[in-house]
Design a binder for these strands. Sequence first.
DNA 1: AGATGATCCTGTATGC
DNA 2: TGCATACAGGATCATC
Length: 269
Amino acid sequence: MPELPEVETVRRELEPWLTGRCIRSAERRDAPPGPKYANLERATGQRIESVGRRGKFLLLPLSAGDELIEHLGMTGVISSTPPPDHLRVELSLSGRSKQRLYFRDVRRFGRFLVVPRGDYRSLPTLHHLGPEPMSDAFTAAALARSLAGSKAPIKALIMGQRPVAGVGNIYTDESLWRAGIHPKRAGGSISKRRVAKLRDAIVEVIGAAIVANGTTLSDYRTVAGGTGGYAEQLNAYGHAGRPCPRCGATFKRAVIAQRGTSYCPRCQR
DNA sequence: AGATGATCCTGTATGC
DNA sequence: TGCATACAGGATCATC
């Protein structure tokens, strides 16, 4: 499941390849028209000025005032070689080598669309996205402000992308385990000290996962087809029924905000 | 307005 | 072997 570290890994590969290239054509392939692929044709003839990222969204400003937005969803993979199936979008690029970009997305939760630059009204999550976890803006005080007064479970709040950008199911479970916070705990009820611990845990987990090129469990691949190496460093995600590496208690499983959640019943309160 | 649950989608795993 | 069912979870929308 691509979260911030996976998307950042992809961004770093795309940047030297795509920056400055002109899009010769942008075509929807095996997918019906719809908002997930809106205005793709507008990309034709525009130059890619840079390859940026906010949370799990790839943001590519184009030379005629538009912006190409890519979101990998659950199973989205960007590559420079044609995939065997489930090809949704194909870009033809200027230049001599690696002239095509392919977007494969088995489950079609991803998006690949063009908007007027900076106009994120059609993408409410991006429009209201919280601070980047690796930026100076993501402080303990900012996180505390964002959680204040909320009765929703901390897991649901973090997954909602408002308190912090780009943290999904895997890294939420990891961060809450590290900070010793029960995933069902009401966001507004967490002490200042604990919130600060959670902020540090998120920064550490996301930072280490970026270094490892993300977590490959099944679908996620880098642009070159490689895998991420953070899976072996996971301490909590998917560990239900196994012993907690910190205290030895058996990890429990719960469903919170429609997502499988594993946590240690002893050291997460 | 905040919180909650349903929905989309398809491959993989499991049970009978 | 075949069939049914459960599960995986990004974001968005409807409904309290």
